[in-house]
Design a binder for these strands. Sequence first.
DNA 1: ACAGAATGCGAGCGATAGCTCGTGTTTGTC
DNA 2: GACAAACACGAGCTATCGCTCGCATTCTGT
Lengths: 218, 218
Amino acid sequence: MPDNAQTQAQTQKEQPRRRQARGERRITQLLEAAARVFCTTGYTAASTNAIAREAGVSPGTLYQFFPNKEAIAIELGDRLVHEMRETYGEALAPIDPATPLEEAVGSAIDRFMAFNTEHPVFFALMHGPDIPGRMAETHDQLYTTLTGRIEGLLGSLMPGAGQADVTRTAHVCLGIYKAGLELVLAHEGAERAAYVQEVKDVLMRYLEPLVGDRLGRG
Amino acid sequence: MPDNAQTQAQTQKEQPRRRQARGERRITQLLEAAARVFCTTGYTAASTNAIAREAGVSPGTLYQFFPNKEAIAIELGDRLVHEMRETYGEALAPIDPATPLEEAVGSAIDRFMAFNTEHPVFFALMHGPDIPGRMAETHDQLYTTLTGRIEGLLGSLMPGAGQADVTRTAHVCLGIYKAGLELVLAHEGAERAAYVQEVKDVLMRYLEPLVGDRLGRG
DNA sequence: ACAGAATGCGAGCGATAGCTCGTGTTTGTC
DNA sequence: GACAAACACGAGCTATCGCTCGCATTCTGT
């Protein structure tokens, strides 16, 4: 009888629950409602009763599908991260040296911005100071993955730099994106597009001297 | 009979309270304790009982000096803003055209970074999504003031740009600073200093093409 | 010294939020 | 049609948090 280390609350003895189609519908319905409430009030201020009300069900029904409030955010975050992995996988995977840096940065920013503007709750869940403990792990994991990808990109473009410098530069790039995202989400229409362009400019001008002679402007 | 605009809750009818030296000491003691608790747990999660415990007094004593939890954050914020006004007044006031942009940006960043690293609670109070209502006003006011100052600086350096462009650039500058501050606060020692330098670089490279021919690296 | 104000205490009140439980309804399977 | 399981309800339990109140102690002015 090997007692696993993850004897906590993963997939231990919670499989006998056979969901019906109605239940699956309720789950997505509840997650959508939770996303709306989290977006407007934040995680802590969002009450489970408010989420249930937003979904048009009773509190008891909510707890039929989620063991607690944190699990709602966890599941929502997991689904978003899963969807994001596809996005950023395509956005950062091809490190084609033939592609001009401006084009690579531009398309990556476009993809990420599109994802985040379509799912504003992702930003709210990941960067709120009141996120549940498990959520912080998910965020850290995603952040580490992203940083690693950017480091890989920068490493081949900054041959003379040390590992610490590359890591630092990657963090700065992500910080610039995050700050830009906040500005982008705060505006709409043409002004939003203008801010997206600003983020690209900031990133490009920051990176240009680093990669210097390799990928210039013509 | 000039009815002042600040007829709200400033010095209306709360003066008959004559504080003793002991009381003043308790107030600063409570504010320091609150700063510590706010820093570690954030505003919402910080309980008044926890603040009182951290200060080594009873909950009743806390409410002898503050009418409610929000007032603690307000008073703390007001004192920090007051201290910051001196800092940023000196940091942004002199728009001496003879000063190289690099030097101006560098000294401004140094001053702001020094202030925020000495008072980390300021960042926690200003950028948390769970800040009390009145605090948001203070933040907006400070933000508007700062943006206005930066706009004034940029306006004289970007003669060809429209007002919207200048405002957008100012917001981007502040966003870059904010993102950099978060990175700086997350590190210490030499690494922290390196991140400060990165923030300066990002800002400089972002602004250099805008001011172009005026202040080069001659 | 003494009155009154300021300071200090901590059990506890009222409100709220997360969550449960007993009960009734719908759905899938024989 | 019948049985079990999944689904749905909502009043209410429990814990916590902001805050109060009655009372004791310390300080200040006279």
